[in-house]
Amino acid sequence: MKKNLFFIPIIFCLITQVAQAQNDCRRQPAFIQKFGFDPARSAVSTAERTYMGVCLIELADAQNQNGKRNKIFQHPSWRKAGYMASVAITEQGDVYVIPAPTVNILYNKPDEQNWVYKIDHQTGEMNRFVELPAAAKPSVQNAYGTLGSFYDCDTHTLFVTSVMGSTQNDEKGRIFAVNLLTNKVTIVAQNTDAMGVCIVKTNGKRQLFFGKTRTSDMYSLTLDANNLPLSEPTFAFTLDNLGPRGDDRARRIRFTNNNLQINAASFYYNLTAPTEKPETIYVFSYDTNQQKWRLVRYE
């Protein structure tokens, strides 16, 4: 199981001829030093074994995410939302985290799974930031709400995917754009269950890539400057039948070195333990001649 880590020291700064990643502005939260951690070796993690919620970790070896932790810190407020999933950090160093149940719903009440939480970059205090409007109430068929997030520096917007209210026969998920300057929430896509999400700027166009959760397909749609969709979601490529399992869903998508890097694992809307979900990283590049995405490698 790959750890769900977000390393503050790593900055994606990838300006290329074709495309540009949109998450290249992250700044270290001030609370790292305040809590006595070495910024060069520290990370915000939501996947520390025996810890629920958000952790600040300091690694013995900054290059080895799965290696020894020198120390782990949890602010008292970092446990209050139960188990957490994706982490996004802004140019101010504010940390936005979203909840997702792990193994059971004892600490993650289903009707509270569409809240986005903010950890203040100065104080380290975590508080509810905004509740995303779900299309339907959760049921015993689906304990999940938010699943993935991505911060777009250009528009100061946090993109969040949610499957709240979806059932076996009803796809009710949404993709949201939350403007962090105005707190305004825009629904970018409806009736769409997705997990990983990423913005890629291509030849001046802003494209939102997302990975579906009912299939292994990747879709994209074009957004305007206000994050309103200019097109319907269109199929981009698929992870179907790739990798060691063949049915992975994109959990995290990032654009680096002109490639889409996709962390993917199985997902069947149940609560199987993360230890059961080995993750594979797929790298795709865009073939401009064929005008389609091609698998470069997976590991």
């Binding site: 025996t50 059971n104 304990a143």
Partner: peptide, 22 residues
């Protein structure tokens, strides 16, 4: 050996469920 370490698992349908072991 580890206070408070363990799991509370539900069992049930393999998809669209709150089951941890399916």
């Amino acid at each position: 050996t580890t206070d408070g370490f363990g799991y509370s698992d539900a069992i049930g349908c393999p998809e669209f469920s709150e089951a941890a072991v399916v």
